[in-house]
Design a protein around this nucleic acid. Structure first.
Lengths: 238, 238
DNA sequence: CAGCCGCAATCTGTCAACATCTTTGGTCAT
DNA sequence: ATGACCAAAGATGTTGACAGATTGCGGCTG
């Protein structure tokens, strides 16, 4: 059962015959992916004629897609001056994590009472997968880098059963986060994340919404501090 | 008719008519206003040719504006099936207030350390204005209906100094709230709101961020319960 | 040689026309 | 009379061309 939601995360269909939908819609998703993937340099100017040629479409649907990207804060537009790809700054990253902390706290609290037994079991599986991945014993093909971490938060957001919250998190904040993809491969920090995930899940298993909210809040606050510090003091540790 | 909450590019600049900018931009704001004002019936289908004629523009800019409205959750679009104005349900209202509660809690906490003395004084003035308005002794011209209540939350959001948070609250959530304009004229409840506003401000004056956050959280949670109940059991109490 | 002005190339914003899809209404067959 | 099928009408999606604005370059002037 694949994710039927309007999730722009298309791993990579062999030939995703997704020729369905409108051109503007497809462009919107492709451009989103292009920006988040880094194919479009952050802060660079966007030339409509160039992009239109690149994607072999006319400027009409392209402009419609750009207007949607504007509302998603992935590009900025000035009248008669064109569009620019959003930029990534430590301040924006900190702002993003603070907002995310509040929204995911809510999601954790709501999900605590909504999760079924099998949901909790799947969350446990995700954590175990993550742990195994850290130890290098995971089936490597199934673990797209950092995807397990994403799966955990993604599933909790879904189980909040708050449509607005789901859209804000899964369609706006999570994509924005990808602008700041980090060298988060530090083993120690990933272990820490697993421990914190486990604490969140324990609270959910106890059906303790307030504890789940608090644990999620602390978890993301820790992540914020680490990520912002890492961005301000880039360690070329690789 | 000044809506200072529309464009982030002009934080507090004097009103320079929306006649500037592109047609698509102007259409976006006019359609937003039309939906929130109730000029476009909720849930009704949107005909592009009709709207284009009504606003005396071609379908190009209109479609660009519609794509932005889609991202703001003010309309829904299906491929080849057109656009419909968003609908208002008690569930959506509850979801909206829960998200708002979390975000404004954050804003209150951040603003507590950012507010200057004059900011706090202005918040106090807003509350006093609100109180006077309830007692019917306010200068009536300055008090657009319910604007004082909005001013309070608006100023706190601004002082969070979190650009993402400001955009989410002032440009997305607050407009969405207007879809559910209520007969909130009940005197008792408005007094209650003033008391809760005062408590929030007191916490901010004490420079106690966590208390301010908690008070804001409770304030909005109370409002949610009242508003959802009012929507489910429409009392024609006026 | 530096700075300003103006022109041209290019881009953004807008429009009207074309193509494709959905819907609706009518006709025909059962 | 009812249901399916077909055709016409309208709406949405897309395109290419036109108009206004911005930018960059080159020449002129102090």
């Amino acid at each position: 059962m694949e994710q039927s939601a309007a999730d722009p995360t298309e791993p990579n269909g062999p030939e995703l015959g997704k020729a369905t939908g409108t051109l503007a819609e497809r462009l919107f998703h492709e451009l989103t992916e292009a920006i988040l993937q880094g194919d479009l340099e952050l802060g660079s100017k966007i030339s409509e004629p160039l992009l239109a040629k690149k994607y072999a479409v006319s400027r009409g649907p392209l402009r419609e897609a750009l207007h949607r990207l504007q509302e998603r804060h992935l590009i900025t537009r000035s009248a008669n001056q064109g569009a620019r790809v959003a930029e990534a700054t430590p301040e924006k990253l900190s702002d993003l994590f603070k907002v995310r902390m509040m929204l995911e706290s809510l999601a954790a609290r709501e999900a605590t009472m909504n999760c079924s037994g099998s949901d909790l079991a799947q969350l446990a599986r995700i954590i175990e997968n993550h742990e195994a991945q850290i130890l290098g014993t995971a089936p490597e093909r199934h673990t797209a880098l950092g995807s397990t971490d994403r799966d955990f938060h993604f599933l909790i957001a879904q189980r909040s059963e708050n449509q607005l919250l789901i859209r804000l998190l899964c369609e706006e904040l999570y994509p924005l986060l990808r602008l700041y993809r980090s060298r988060n491969d530090n083993l120690e920090l990933r272990k820490r994340a697993c421990i914190e995930h486990r604490r969140i899940l324990d609270a959910m298993i106890d059906r303790d919404p307030e504890m789940a909210e608090l644990m999620m809040r602390r978890h993301i606050d820790h992540a914020r501090q680490r990520r912002v510090r890492a961005m301000e003091h880039p360690k070329t540790s690789d």
